[in-house]
C-alpha cells in the first residue's frame, strides 16, 4: 500500500479530507498570491457596486428634491456598510464558499475538516478581516499566513476554515515511447529489469510528462537520472 497513515504528513500544500464514503483525498491549499489576486478582483467589484449605487442614488436624489437629501446619505451609508461587512458573507454563503473573485480564480473556502462552510464560519472569518488587515494592507494576516502550513490567516484560524484551489487537471494520455524502440534495443534488455517500484513510478511519470515538456528540458531531466539507472543495471549484470 502506498497510502500509509502512520507516516508523517508530507511537506506539501495539501489538506486531507476523509469523506463519508471513507475515501481520503487531498485538497490543494491556496497560497497568498492567488488569494491576494482574488481579493483585488473582489475589491474592484465592491468599488463598482458603491460607484453604481452612488450614481443611481445621486440621480434619484435630484429627482426627489432637496428635502430628501438626507435619505441619499443614509442609503449610501447602508450600502457602504453592506459592501464592507456583508459582501463576503453573502456570497460565501450563497455560493458555497466562493466570492466572485474566488470563483474567477477557482478558489473555495471550506472548513478544515473538508465540510462546507456554515454562515457563522463565514461571518467570523470575514469580520476578522479587521484584525488581519492590521496595521495596514493585511500585513498581520500575511505574516500569520506565511507561518501556517495551510496558509490560514487569523480569520481562518478562528473560524476553522481553509481556502482551497479547485484546479482542473487533464488525465494523461496513453503511454507512448517515442521513438519506438528497435528490435535490437528490445533484445538488449534483460528478461527481468532490476528496478524498484519507486524507480518505476519515476520512469513512468517521466514518460507520461515527456510529451508536454520541451525536448531540451526532457533530455536535460533524463540526463540527471540516466547515470543512476546505468549504474544499477551494470551492478545487477556483473553481480
Amino acid at each position: 500500500m502506498r497510502v500509509s497513515h502512520n507516516q508523517p504528513a508530507p511537506i506539501d500544500t495539501s489538506a486531507e479530507v476523509e469523506t463519508p464514503e471513507h475515501v481520503r483525498f487531498q485538497h490543494q491549499v491556496a497560497g497568498p498570491a492567488r488569494r491576494a489576486l482574488a481579493y483585488l478582483i473582489d475589491l474592484f467589484i465592491r468599488a463598482m457596486i458603491v460607484g453604481l449605487f452612488g450614481i443611481i442614488v445621486a440621480i434619484a436624489g435630484f429627482a426627489a428634491g432637496i428635502e430628501m437629501r438626507g435619505v441619499s446619505t443614509g442609503i449610501m451609508a447602508v450600502i457602504y456598510f453592506g459592501v464592507e461587512w456583508c459582501y463576503y458573507v453573502l456570497f460565501e454563503t450563497l455560493w458555497s464558499g466562493r466570492s466572485p473573485g474566488k470563483k474567477v480564480l477557482h478558489l473555495r473556502v471550506i472548513t478544515d475538516t473538508g465540510r462546507p462552510l456554515h454562515y457563522l464560519d463565514s461571518m467570523l472569518r470575514n469580520v476578522l478581516r479587521a484584525g488581519d488587515l492590521l496595521p495596514n494592507l493585511y500585513a498581520l494576516g500575511l505574516v500569520i499566513m506565511g507561518r501556517d502550513p495551510k496558509f490560514r490567516r487569523l480569520g481562518d484560524m478562528v473560524a476553522g476554515t481553509i481556502v482551497v484551489v479547485e484546479e482542473r487537471f487533464d488525465v494523461s494520455e496513453r503511454l507512448h515511447v517515442h521513438p519506438i524502440p528497435s528490435p535490437f534495443e528490445m533484445a538488449a534488455l534483460p528478461q527481468r529489469v532490476p528496478i524498484s517500484g519507486e524507480e518505476m513510478d519515476a520512469l513512468e511519470l517521466f514518460l507520461r510528462r515527456a510529451p508536454k515538456l520541451h525536448p531540451a528540458r526532457a533530455s536535460e531531466l533524463a540526463d540527471i537520472v540516466a547515470p543512476i539507472f546505468r549504474q544499477t543495471r551494470r551492478r545487477s549484470i556483473s553481480g
Binding site: 500500500m1 502506498r2 497510502v3 479530507v17 469523506t19 475515501v23 483525498f25 487531498q26 485538497h27 490543494q28 460565501e92 454563503t93 450563497l94 455560493w95 458555497s96 464558499g97 473555495r108 471550506i110 473538508g114 465540510r115 462546507p116 462552510l117 456554515h118 454562515y119 482551497v164 479547485e166 484546479e167 482542473r168 487537471f169 487533464d170 488525465v171 494523461s172 517500484g197 513510478d201 513512468e204 511519470l205 507520461r208 510528462r209
Partner: peptide, 28 residues
C-alpha cells in the same frame, strides 16, 4: 492510490473528487 498508478492520475482524480465533494455537500 493502492495500485501505484502515477501521481498525475491521482492528482486528476483528487481534483474531481474535491470539486464534486464541494458541489454535492454544498453550504447548508
Amino acid at each position: 492510490q493502492s495500485a501505484r498508478y502515477t501521481p498525475d492520475l491521482t492528482g486528476y482524480l483528487n481534483g474531481i473528487a474535491g470539486r464534486a465533494h464541494s458541489a454535492l455537500y454544498g453550504a447548508r
